[in-house]
Design a protein around this nucleic acid. Structure first.
Length: 439
RNA sequence: CGGGGUGUGGCGCAGCCUGGUAGCGCGCCUGUUUUGGGUACAGGAGGUCGUGGGUUCGAGUCCCGCCGCCCCGACCA
């Protein structure tokens, strides 16, 4: 993309409504624009990040054996009356009436709908387990939206639902998702900690929240310093298989033996057993939440399969959510500096920015065009006829992992300057070498 | 939903107390200039002052209602 004609409206000054870093940077770097309280339009740069995060989530769900579907945003009230949640959900649910006066709603979550799909089609325990997921926009009419996309009313969420014959099977599904989640967050450059959590209105008795640490987080969290030492990347390389219950048990064990809880579930007695030098507390951002809730919905909605003895059984369910749009903000909270965003390579909207420090200079233009042709869609070419300073500032703000800086001096000598945004390190190399390093 | 704040060109703000026909910085357009970290100069475009009503000869400014947005709290991916 050429910046001169890109729809990337960067701002020099911070809009007054943005209070926290990620929100400010998302507005300043031209990722999103607010359309009403807690509702955002995604602009090209922001959408590319959102899609990258979505892609990673999808790949890890697929790897775990979950199957992607796509359920609608609008749901009939009838299903929610069956589960008993239509009245219970309160004003947070956006209720709609269609032209025939039927009660509809904009889905805040999909337990009812997926259970309905399940009961229509799955007849036998032989077809279990099933894990279904989709990545879809949700609407929760929050009393007080805030923090930009971190607590919007409309948000993109990956939600998965597991169906197992019995409790033991449900536990395996739960652990599968925990593994998938840790891999997912790790690939985005985030260090997430699974913490014991409340089950909330979804219900159930086993639940973990995935928290990344950030001073601006909404939850107060307490955890054992052991989590700072666990390197699940290394363990991952050692190999945990989604298909081996023993692996999953080992992984689950590793992630849950040490103390970690949000304030709702904080157990002071257990906490005090930790020595002072191992106690860690701080703020965290919830980026995922998994629940086991058994037969709550399958019973309420009459979903059964034939068991081995031919008698009907209510399958055991779990649900598993990742806040996809929230993650865009969360990644920024975890990775930025005074100049702007520092995108991890895996989610960056562009791998590299090409900075033409002197547009109109034949050597600069030619070299930039060459680099741009090689990098194609992976590069954002700053071909604006602006001053060098403005280009440096915008490139840092937008946070591309690499900057290819082309000035008259270098261009004449056939060299470009390659800057790594995360470290600030710059080297002067040939264009070929630069392209090689960017990969 | 309780408490607090705010609404004036695209962004950031002043003007309101003490009513007299809208201003500053940035950005944008044109020209000159500058050319490796948001250059300088000159000219220019752009505003129903959130909205409805009221007071007044006259309202951005005073009064009343409504709406939007932000912050703190309670609640949540």
């Amino acid at each position: 993309m050429r910046l001169s004609h890109g729809f990337i409206p960067t701002l020099k000054e911070t809009p007054a409504e943005a209070q926290i870093t990620s929100h400010r940077l998302m507005l300043r770097a031209g990722l999103v624009r607010q359309t009403s309280a807690g509702i955002y339009a995604w602009l090209p740069l922001g959408l590319r990040v959102l899609r990258n995060i979505e892609r990673i989530v999808r790949e890890e769900q697929d790897r775990s054996g979950a199957q992607e579907i796509l359920m609608p945003t609008i749901q009939p009230a009838e299903l929610w009356r069956e589960s008993g949640r239509y009245d219970g959900y309160g004003k947070e649910m956006l209720r709609i009436t269609d032209r025939h006066d039927r009660d509809m709603l904009y889905g805040p979550t999909n337990e009812e709908m997926v259970t309905d799909l399940f009961r229509q089609s799955i007849r036998s325990y032989r077809e279990l387990p099933q894990i279904l997921y989709h990545i879809q926009w949700k609407f929760r009419d929050e009393v007080r939206p805030r923090f930009g996309v971190m607590r919007g009313r409309e948000f993109l969420m990956k939600d998965a639902y597991s169906f197992d014959l019995d409790h033991a099977g449900a536990v395996v599904s739960y652990r599968k998702m925990m593994l998938a989640y840790m891999r997912t967050f790790q690939r985005m450059g985030l260090k997430a900690i699974p913490m014991e959590a409340d089950t909330g209105p979804i219900g159930g008795d086993l639940s973990h929240e995935f928290i990344i640490l950030a001073p601006t987080g909404e939850s107060q969290v307490y955890y054992d310093a052991a989590f700072e030492e666990i390197d699940y990347l290394a363990n991952d390389a050692g190999g945990f298989s989604h298909d081996q219950p023993d692996d999953l048990a080992r992984f689950f064990q590793m992630m849950t033996t040490h103390y970690a809880a949000t304030d709702e579930k904080h157990d002071v007695a257990r906490w005090d057993q930790l020595s002072a030098d191992r106690k860690r507390e701080g703020r965290g951002i919830e980026v995922g939440h998994i629940f086991y809730f058994g037969t709550k919905y399958t019973k309420a909605m009459g979903a059964t399969v034939a068991g081995p003895d031919g008698k009907p059984v209510h399958p055991e369910m779990g649900s598993y959510g990742i806040g996809v749009s929230r993650l865009v903000g969360a990644v920024i909270e975890a990775s930025h500096d005074d100049a702007g965003i520092i995108w991890p390579d895996s989610v960056a909207p562009f791998k590299a920015a090409i900075l033409n420090l002197k547009t109109g200079d034949a050597a600069c233009d030619a070299l930039c065009e060459r680099l741009y042709a090689s990098l194609g869609g992976n590069a954002l070419y700053d071909d604006r006829p602006d001053r060098a300073g403005a280009k440096f500032a915008d490139a840092d703000l937008m946070g591309h992992p690499w900057q290819l800086i082309v000035g008259p001096r270098g261009a004449a000598a056939g060299k470009v300057e390659l800057k790594r945004r995360a470290t600030g390190e710059r080297v002067e190399v040939t264009p070929e070498e630069a392209l090689g390093r960017i990969g």
